[in-house]
Amino acid sequence: MKERLLIVEDDEAIANILKEHLEKEGYEINWSSTGKEGLEDFKKYQFGLVMIDIMLPEMDGFTLCKNIRWINEDIPIIIVSAKQTDMDKVKGLKIGADDYVTKPFSLTEVSARVEAHLRRYRKTDRGSISNEKLVFKKGLIIIPEERKVTIEEKEIQVTLKEFELLQLMAQNPNKVFSKEELYQHIWQSVDVEGNNTVTVHIKELREKLRDSSKNPDFIQTVWGTGYKFIGENIYET
């Protein structure tokens, strides 16, 4: 059974060429025309591989790649771009892309690279980290499939955005997220100066988790930057 692939490309002509070619190869294709739409689709469906252009409206390809990596650290990502400088290629690979194909491209080469990356991915654990239960000391358990959070075996009521913030940070422990990155990833929009949305949601989360801002067990403020999750993991199932 062939894989479902995600193509994020704002040029309809190029997207159609890739889509038609890969569908002939037996793949199921989803096409997104903006970075924001691509992130929404990635969260909604299960994909085997993602192909991303760099110059995208609403959210550029580099930012999209980074956001996808926060959700799934293993899925193959191929950047397909007209940008051919070594600097762009290095930047793409550093933020998590597995490969970089320059336009104009050979469809035969694209097929070969897609199949090669899928073979590697099939050999790894395909379970997305977004579906793994996370268990931490101090009694915190996060169950993504049920969108459930418990503290010392008592469920606490969190909003959807609060849950998504907690899940993202808990799945990327000790990674410092800026408020702008959190807002862009969770609200899928560009942060504006004076927007306290993230701050307010973190404050509410801390109160519900009974987590002190001065001596936190879970969410630590990184002054001048943002926040990071410091909970001590016990195991994941």
Rank of each mutant, 00 (worst) to 15 (best):
I71F: 03
T124Y: 04
E207S: 15
R4W: 01
E145N: 13
I156R: 01
D11M: 13
K83P: 00
G127S: 08
K83I: 06
V198I: 15
I142A: 02
L93N: 10
Y27W: 08
D10Q: 03
S106P: 03
V8W: 01
Y121N: 02
M1E: 12
G35F: 04
K66N: 14
I54D: 10
I29W: 11
R120Q: 09
E73R: 09
F42K: 03
N30D: 15
S33A: 10
F47M: 04
I142W: 00
E152Q: 11
L93S: 08
G92Y: 09
N233R: 14
I234W: 09
W70C: 03
W223D: 09
E180R: 04
G35P: 07
R122Q: 08
I142D: 02
L22I: 01
T124I: 05
Y235Q: 10
D98L: 01
T225S: 14
N233P: 05
K138E: 12
T150D: 12
E23R: 06
G96L: 13
K103H: 09
V158D: 02
A116G: 11
E232W: 01
M55C: 03
E152G: 09
I151A: 06
R113F: 02
F136K: 03
I14W: 04
E28L: 08
G38S: 01
R113D: 02
K148N: 09
L93C: 11
L49A: 13
R147L: 06
N72Q: 08
M55E: 05
T199N: 11
K154W: 00
K133Q: 02
F47Y: 13
T85F: 10
E109F: 08
L134W: 00
S213R: 15
Y121R: 00
D60M: 05
Q167F: 13
Y45H: 14
F163P: 01
W223G: 14
E12N: 15
I143L: 07
Y45L: 12
R126P: 00
F105T: 06
V200I: 12
I14Y: 10
I77C: 07
K179P: 03
V90E: 15
K19N: 04
I77K: 11
G61V: 03
A97R: 13
G139C: 14
P216S: 12
M87H: 06
R206M: 13
V222K: 00
K148C: 10
V114F: 11
E58Y: 08
E58V: 03
T197P: 02
K36R: 11
F105G: 11
I234L: 14
E181P: 15
R120S: 07
V158E: 02
A170Q: 04
N172T: 01
K138W: 05
N16S: 14
G226T: 03
A15C: 10
M51K: 01
K161H: 06
K161M: 01
E207M: 12
Q171C: 12
V149A: 00
N215P: 06
Q84I: 05
D98S: 06
R113W: 01
T34Q: 12
V101Q: 00
G92S: 10
F218T: 07
V110W: 02
T221Y: 08
E146C: 00
T63E: 05
T124A: 09
R69A: 09
K175W: 05
V80Q: 11
D11R: 15
K203R: 14
T85H: 10
N172L: 00
W70H: 13
Q46P: 07
M55V: 04
S128K: 15
K175Y: 07
D99R: 13
K138L: 01
K2Y: 14
L5N: 10
E181Q: 14
